[in-house]
Structure formats: structure tokens, C-alpha cells
Design a protein around this nucleic acid. Structure first.
Lengths: 224, 224
DNA sequence: CGGTTCGTTGAGATCGGTCAACTCAAGTGG
DNA sequence: CCACTTGAGTTGACCGATCTCAACGAACCG
């Protein structure tokens, strides 16, 4: 069994020897670092902490978040298996990161990556791709936040579906509250909107966390 | 006189020999590229165009924007004198760029920059800083868009004031519509909010495009 | 002086938020 | 096995911030 860390306790990465799952991944980056397991809601790093590590998800889902001065929470991003996260613009984390479900994560020393990047053009290229993708996502997000609740939810579903690549059915490991804080809506509005989309047959709620996209064209129309 | 290009016509960068203003700037990047002048509302590059050039503003102000499928316009960012823009995640521009007022811009070939970056660590560092700053701004923006109209406007004024560095008075070269499209509000709401802030003495509208910040603490409070 | 663009102001409509009750599924322990 | 708890999600009624539509004012320019 992977190491389980207790919930809600800020944790430091813990070395625990390579796991079989890690060898299944491609690319030189995967050959570095220690795989660490996190339980549901475990904190991977905290806001304001030194950004000394970069992470790659082997299994599970991670969210980054930030508590605003007025107590509201903003989700920075969701990361799925295969995604990397934790590389920030500055040398301090602007968001905190938590596991959404049972997750296994490779922990890479940032300094080691940067050192390799100086020698190895492919690694440098990889870092550039990584931060470029973060920028693209953030820009997408800005566009999304300018839209109506229905458009935001539709766009979110399409984005998740594309990232999961599993046909027209979407798996939502995160709660309605997580989605709401990501989209800048309330939980109630997310719920109503999903049920509204189900009402006009654009989607079908197989259950709360599992959704079938029935009319992708209609969803893309909304996502415009 | 700088070259004047007719409004609303997509333009290619035009060589026109170094101008005195360019030599006043520091750093190796400033010694490259051709300064080009743009008139109010001139397009510097279009959405979807190849991102072959990177730009540095010598004088003036630039906005990047994108027309959504439903006809609404979203402003990507405002760039002031000294700022660089046009470096995108992909090799195609996601936004278009237009001059807000009479502007003078250095045009740098992206490939030349990248080539220099491979040899010169300082240039590579500069590119990294540039894209990092873009990412930070985009993230800031996401947080801003989760707030009320008053908070967005207050945050915008504080941001502009900080970037202009000219004490507690802010110069707004862009129209109310530009601000609205940047903040995800309507022009009317921006206008009402500014006049509301003036009403409670947080700011003073010297004129429509020139604002004095009278109670920065109150504005920061809103910006929370 | 007339036209044009930009900004302001008003009145009413609406989308999404707030507050609150209810359902449902998954434990947990007696 | 059943009562109880707990957390997530749904649903309803009401409210308010922001949008929409429209008129008006002000600055600028030929």
C-alpha cells in the first residue's frame, strides 16, 4: 500500500522508493523523483510556501486553491493523471495544492529540473511547454469567467471531457463546491445549471459525479 | 514625424530606421529591432496570425483583444510604455493587438530572440521572466473576475497606478468600453462605479481619463 | 455650427446569489 | 439490523447587483 498521510495536516514530501506505476510513464522526467501518496483532501503544498518542488500526477486528481481575504475560496486549476503542477512564476506558491481523491504524485526537485534544463534542451523545452500551457489555461479561464453560468458549466464539461479523452462521458472527481469555486459560481447555481442542461437533453446525469454528454454540438454552441 | 498607418487596416511591421527614443532604453533587447509608429486604433497584429514577432512599447499604450463568437469583445491586457507583448504560448496569436493612442513600438523577430536565448542566458532569463509575468497577470485577473464591480474597478485603478508609478494620480488612456471589456463589466457599470467611488471620496475624477486616488487604503480594502 | 464620439444618468428586467429546507447515500455504532 | 450522523447534492423563494435599453450631456473637430 502507498503511504497514507492523515487528512488536513500540511505535509512535506516523503521519500518512499520508486513504485511500479511510475515506470509505466514515458519521458526522462518520469525517471526522476519520488512517488508519494496523498489521501483525499491532503495538502500537497501550502500557499506562500517555497516552490522548491514540481509535481507530476501518476494517479488521482489535484486542485490548487487560494483563500481570499473575505473567506471565499478560488480554485486555480484541476490537474489529472499525467499532468504536472507546482511550477510557479515566482519562487513561492501563490496557490495551495490538495489531493481531491486518493492520489499518487511524483515529486521533483525544481532546482534539479532547472539544472538539467541548462544542459538538456529537451528538458528546457518541456519546462517552456509547461508554463505555456499554464498561461493558455489561465487565459481560457479569463474568457470563461466573462460568460454566463450555462456557458461556464458547458465549457467546463467540454474541457474535462477533452482532457479525459474518454468518449462523451465525463468523470467529475471533484465536488460541486470545487466546480463552483473554479467557475466563480455558487454550488447551487452549478447544480441548477447541470440539471437544466440535463432537462434540455444536452447532458445526462448518470449520477452526481458521472455525466454523459448527449449533444456536444449544443454544448459547444454555448461555449462559443 | 513617425510613420502613420491608416486606422482599422491590418498592418505588417514596417522598417523605418532607429529613432532617438529607442536609445534611451536600457538592456540588450532594446538594441534590436525596428521602431514602428501606430496611430490610435491601428491594429498591430491580428488574432490567428503567426506570432513571428515580439514587441516592446517605446511610447504609448496597447491593448490585446479577442472577439467572442457572440460578438462581445474581451480585452486580454493593457500594455504601457516599457512593457513587452506579443509573446504567446503557441506560435499563433490568440488575441489581436491594437494601439490605444499614438504609440511607438520596437518590433523584434521572435526567432532571433529565441536564437539569442540559446546562446545568451540573460536573454533566456528575460523570456522566462516575460512569460512568468504574463502568467501572474492572468492569474491575478482570474481572481479579479471573481469579485464585485466595485472591487474590480478599485483593483484596476490600483494596478494601473502601481504600473505608472506616478504617485496617487492615474492616467487612463483607454476608453470606458475598453475598461469594461477588460473587467468583464458593461461600460455603464464602470462609469457608475467610478462615480460611486468619487462620491465616497475614495477617488476624484479630475476628468474622464485622469483620476486622483484619494483614499488608497479604502481602495485596497475593496481589492482584498 | 452641426456632427460624432465618449461618457453619464435613469428605469426596469434578469441572472445568479442567499438562505433555508429537504433528499439521498454512506458510514458508524449500539 | 436499525437508528443516527454526516456530507453532498438538490430544490424553492426571495433579493439584489449588474445588465439592458434609452435618453441626455460634454468634448472635440471639421
Amino acid at each position: 500500500m502507498p503511504i497514507q498521510l492523515s487528512p488536513h495536516v500540511p505535509t512535506r514530501p516523503v521519500r518512499s522508493g520508486p513504485q511500479p506505476a511510475m515506470r509505466a510513464l514515458g519521458g526522462p522526467i518520469d525517471m526522476m523523483g519520488a512517488p508519494v501518496a496523498f489521501a483525499r483532501n491532503d495538502e500537497i503544498y501550502a500557499e506562500g510556501e517555497a516552490a522548491d518542488y514540481v509535481y507530476k500526477i501518476v494517479r488521482g486528481t489535484v486542485r490548487t486553491s487560494k483563500i481570499l481575504a473575505d473567506g471565499r475560496r478560488q480554485i486555480g486549476a484541476f490537474y489529472l493523471a499525467g499532468d504536472m503542477f507546482g511550477l510557479e512564476a515566482g519562487d513561492e506558491h501563490v496557490f495551495s495544492a490538495e489531493a481531491i481523491d486518493e492520489s499518487q504524485v511524483l515529486v521533483l526537485k525544481r532546482s534539479a529540473l532547472v539544472a538539467r534544463a541548462a544542459r538538456d534542451g529537451a528538458v528546457a523545452q518541456g519546462l517552456w511547454t509547461l508554463i505555456s500551457r499554464e498561461l493558455s489555461r489561465a487565459q481560457e479561464r479569463v474568457l470563461l469567467l466573462a460568460k454566463t453560468a450555462q456557458e461556464r458549466v458547458a465549457g467546463f464539461l467540454l474541457d474535462m471531457a477533452a482532457r479525459q479523452g474518454a468518449g462523451d462521458t465525463v468523470d467529475l472527481p471533484m465536488s460541486r463546491q470545487d466546480i463552483a469555486d473554479y467557475l466563480g459560481l455558487t454550488m447551487e447555481t452549478v447544480s441548477r445549471t447541470l440539471n437544466g442542461l440535463a432537462g434540455n437533453a444536452s447532458i445526462q446525469l448518470l449520477n452526481a459525479r458521472h455525466i454523459a454528454l448527449r449533444d456536444i454540438a449544443a454544448l459547444q454552441q454555448m461555449n462559443a
